[in-house]
Design a protein around this nucleic acid. Structure first.
Length: 411
DNA sequence: TCTGGGGTCCTAGGACCC
DNA sequence: TCTGGGGTCCTAGGACCC
């Protein structure tokens, strides 16, 4: 069979994927959990992550904990502790950066590493460098990772899945076709269910079927991202390693589900207010301001009603966004429907410019108040100080350590 | 199977202008 | 006033990812 046309000097990229990361962190912190059926997500009542032992008993992510315990009676369910996981994550990335400066922090438990040219530095093969990284992580953090090495990001990402957990797999140019043959098209990174359905109609079932399709077909039926994935599968690297640290957001969203579903206008609006305050606090941390605000109410059958409001000036201070929130809420709220989730999305801008006509003094007063609020919340915990209209939802859930409702901000 | 809370990018189509 | 061509910007929504 004809080989794909590959660049003569392909890049070497490794994808590192921690195994059952959240649970592995818990096990590293508390070795008595090793080898046991353990899961994280107690606070939500839903399995967020689980050990391989629990997976073997048929427990799945997203399962309700009581269902999981039926399947696996000895299951230990722990509250998730994101601060610890973030620290493990940071340390894992730092270990990887000892090997190459070109490290993309792809998610909390995954990284891409550009190894191109490093064989000389380490006097060994790319596979051996990958092995060294894997061992270093296990030795220093007591967690295991699976590593894939190949000539494009897409192939490396797929390689890391081949021998999970604690595995190492290399896909060389000459092996691409043999390996893609056994991988279903929907398991390709970037091809979801929808596209897999479309591909099946054309007899494309495996990753290899897709990779072997001619360019004319790709151009005719698929858009840019799929063309890029197609190229990557054929060994032509188009996705670079993005080593810059994320410092900004285009959108920030906050959503919260609740049970039982509710049609209580006051409760729903207070939930939205709380979402808004949390999203705004995050936006302020990154020096961002919203230019548009989206508001959603979701019913039990996953149907969402949404509205989007354009703001007259960029803002990240809840009092300045309350009118827009009210407007959006009024527009989408329908009496008699039971809702189970509220969500807001801030569409953000970096360069905050106030026009001469905006009330700069008023905005500045509110900003100063929120500087203090951010300070207090940092000291005493999230939601220590919040808007009075988010009280009903706060009282329904966890109570903050110190509650100082801001009854009415006068400006 | 649809569990939950984040995100990103791309495209099509409308608004508006020349 | 109508017709047609062309460009840009914005936004909604789709698809995908962890």
């Amino acid at each position: 069979m004809a080989q794909f046309c590959i660049n003569s000097w392909p890049m070497a990229v490794a994808h590192i994927d921690a195994d059952a990361f959240f649970v592995a962190c818990e096990q590293a912190l508390n070795p008595s959990l090793n080898g046991k059926c353990a899961a994280v997500g107690k606070e939500r009542g839903i399995i967020t992550a689980l050990s391989y032992e629990a997976k073997a008993k048929g427990v799945k992510r997203g399962m309700r904990t009581f269902e999981a315990k039926k399947l696996c009676p000895g299951l230990i369910v722990i509250e998730s502790d994101y601060e610890s996981y973030s620290l493990f994550s940071l340390r894992m990335f730092n270990i990887i950066k000892n090997f190459s400066p070109q490290v993309e922090e792809y998610s909390i438990d995954e990284a891409f590493v550009d190894l191109t040219g490093l064989r000389r530095v380490f006097s060994c093969s790319y596979e051996a460098i990958a092995k060294k990284m894997q061992s270093a992580i296990e030795k220093e953090l007591s967690i295991t990772v699976s590593v894939g090495v190949s000539i494009t990001k897409t192939l490396a990402k797929m390689a890391s899945k081949l021998k999970k957990p604690n595995g190492l797999a290399v896909i060389e140019g000459k092996d691409i076709q043999n390996i893609l043959r056994d991988i279903p098209a929907e398991d390709v990174w970037g091809i979801g269910n929808n596209t897999a359905c479309l591909l099946r109609k054309f007899g494309i079932n495996s990753a290899l079927d897709f990779a072997l399709k001619d360019e004319g077909f790709i151009d005719k039926y698929l858009s840019k991202p799929y063309k890029e994935t197609w190229l990557e599968l054929r060994g032509n690297s188009v996705f670079g390693i993005n080593a810059s640290v994320k410092s900004s957001y285009k959108t920030i969203s906050k959503a919260k589900s609740f049970y039982p579903p509710s049609d209580d206008e006051t409760f729903l609006f207070s939930e939205l207010t709380k979402n808004l305050e949390n999203a705004c606090a995050k936006a302020r941390r990154f020096n961002l301001a919203a230019v548009r605000l989206s508001v959603f109410l979701k019913t039990r059958d996953f149907k969402a009603a949404g509205a989007q409001i354009r703001l007259t000036f960029p803002a990240a201070l809840p009092p300045l966004l309350m009118e827009a929130l009210k407007e959006g809420f009024k527009y989408i709220y329908a009496k008699g429907y039971l809702y189970r989730q509220t969500e807001i999305v801030l569409h953000l801008t970096e360069n905050v410019q106030y026009s001469l006509f905006d009330d700069i003094i008023k905005i500045d007063r509110i900003r100063r108040i929120y500087d203090s609020i951010d300070f207090i919340n940092k000291r005493f915990g999230r939601n220590s100080v919040h808007l009075a209209s988010s009280m009903p939802s706060l009282n329904a859930g966890h109570s903050p350590r110190l509650s100082i409702p801001l009854i009415d901000i006068k400006v």
